[in-house]
Amino acid sequence: MGLKKYISDIFYGVKSLITGMKVTGHYFVRPKEIITQQYPENRESLKMFDRFRGEVVLIHDENNMHKCTGCSACELACPNGSIEIISDKVIDPETGKSTKVIDKFVYHLSMCTFCNLCILSCPTDAIKMAQNFEHSVFDRSELTKVLNKPGSKIMPGIR
């Protein structure tokens, strides 16, 4: 009885190991079924999905115009304080009214958790999430970015 079980255990064990090896062998002879990507080499052809959240960008058009009114809705919506808006009051020479314009749209990438709440809160759709995910830099200070390009202005008609 004991001997019989001992021998059957050996056979069962060997059989179970061979079953596992069969799966490994299946993929060994069919390398096309392996789905590995060669990442740094395929950078040119690598396309991320449209909704992928990589970083916040301020949308500029070809005339270097953006849509940000400096309302600070995104600053309030952000849970980590990664957005800081520094705005100025500018007096319109024609009408004499003072309007708010952004001086700097500061974005701390190091604090951002990519939760998308700022994008949802923006009333003028001025910001969006870009697909760039390669954020490594040599110095931490490089992760604090000013998103509005130098010399950019607000689009006419955006209030």
């Binding site: 999905f49 909704r51 958790t113 990519f114 998308n116």
Partner: peptide, 26 residues
């Protein structure tokens, strides 16, 4: 990949908001 396409992130997707979803499905 399914999550990345619909929710926008692979791991910490944050797809729910109180009252529904952040976007419609892809």
């Amino acid at each position: 990949d399914i999550f990345e396409e619909t929710c926008g992130a692979r791991l910490t997707m944050n797809y729910n908001v109180p009252g529904g979803l952040m976007f419609d499905i892809h």
